[in-house]
Structures are given as C-alpha cells and as structure tokens.
Amino acid sequence: MVPIFELEDVSLSYELAGGARNVLRNISFTVSDGEILTFCGASGTGKTSLLRIMAGLTRQTGGTANFRGAPIDGPANDVAIVFQDYSNALLQWRTVGRNVALGIERTLKGTELKDRVMDALRLVGLEKNVNDYPWQLSGGMQQRVQIARALALKPSVLLMDEPFAALDAMTKASLQDELLNIRDKTGANIVFITHDIEEAVYLGDRVAVLRGTPSTVEQLFDIALPKPRNQITTRELPEFLALRHQIHDAIGGHS
C-alpha cells in the first residue's frame, strides 16, 4: 500500500545574506494510513519548515517528498493545514460560518454548503457561534474555527502546526480530546507538530523527535498506549511516563 507521505533524504537550506542556513538534513520517514504522527523538538529545530514541505508551501532543497506516491508540488487537494496563529489565519471580517465556508463555497451551494459548514462546526462544538465574528471568541474557540474550516474540506490529512501552543492548559486538554474524537469520527490522518512532549505522546501513534542544527529525525517512538486515551489515567500510566522520559532525553533537554 502506498504511504500517505513518504519523505526520503529531505534537506532544506535558505540562502541568506550571510551565507546559506541549513535547517533540515537527511529527513526520512513515512506516514501510513490511519495514524497520528507527532513531531516533537526544541524550538528552532525546523518542525514548522518540515510541515510546510509536507503542505506544499515550501519546497525542499534536496531529497524527495511524495504525497500518495506523487512528488509534492503545491498544496494538495485533500490536505488541510491548521496554523498556530489562529487570529492571523482567520478572516476577521467574516463570521465564523463564512470563515468555515471559505474553502468550499466555490464548489458547494445553498443548503449543501450550509449543512457542510454546520457539520464541521458541530465537530468542534461551535454550532451556536456560526454568526459570531472571530474577534468575539476566545483563543480556544478561534482555533476551533480554524480546525472546523480545515475539516469542512473533508480532508484525508490534517497537518497541524503547534495548534494548541498558544492556549491555556485546560483549553489545550479539551482540544486534544476533541482532536482524537474527530480523528475517530472522520478517519483523517494527522501530522501534528508540538514542542510539548506530553502532548506528543498523548496524541501520537508515533512520535518523531527532531534534533540538531540542521536537524534530522533523531528517533522514532511507537506509542502503544491503550485507546481511548484519557487525560488523567493515560497520563498516569508507567508507559506514558517512561516514554516521556525517553523522548525528553532524545530531544536533548536538560532539567
């Protein structure tokens, strides 16, 4: 079976005034159908750059990056991206409903469009806020709107760039569970970037650790924790704590 993503020996460097800056080197991994792959690493390890390559927003400078067997050449049709900075990513002059409709209103009309928007909003629990403007909502709700906009496309893959990093701990926990729920309901594959080790373990079926400058995949961890996951019990499991420890060491953290 063809993997969803297949990256081989991918590298990325920018030409800057003071010379080239290498961001990524020898990145190789695959994403297979049905899994949540989380990337974890310290800041500045090129996590976002890697996601942008997968999203088709940045082109790698070396190696091959394939999506469903074909080289990535711009944003693909059933791949949706959720950015970290929700307030920049939402159209402040459009209501929640019309933000969610942005990607589908060209192809869908009338009740079909309305139903799809409401379905997406229901998945993130915002069906009552369809007529609000983004600036009337809390940060967590705004990020939900962005997730709903991505889900409205019915994507087979969700690429998420530290989507919960700017949110408080409680909002973050509830959105993590919502995300796992959404995965179960929609069957979407998720590639999730975070610098939060516990989040990476809690959400992931596998965790890839990025390390170094330029960075590469230091280690891949299989997360064999029982499902459905639970914010309290899962996080108390000895396996969870052991993985947290190992990943912490792999990242190269000191504490």
């Binding site: 999203a55 944003p75 049709n77 791949v79 949706a80 991206i81 950015f83 990513a89 942005l102 060209r106």
Partner: peptide, 19 residues
C-alpha cells in the same frame, strides 16, 4: 499567513483578490 491560507484552501486567483 492569509495568503498561505488562501493557497492551502486552493482558492482561485480571483477569489484571492475578492475574498
């Protein structure tokens, strides 16, 4: 960011201009 959102949602050029 908005331009990237438009690209990732595969909006047409006229949509990017008007929307």
């Amino acid at each position: 960011r908005l331009r990237e959102v438009a690209r990732s949602l595969k909006l047409h050029r006229s949509e990017i201009l008007f929307k």
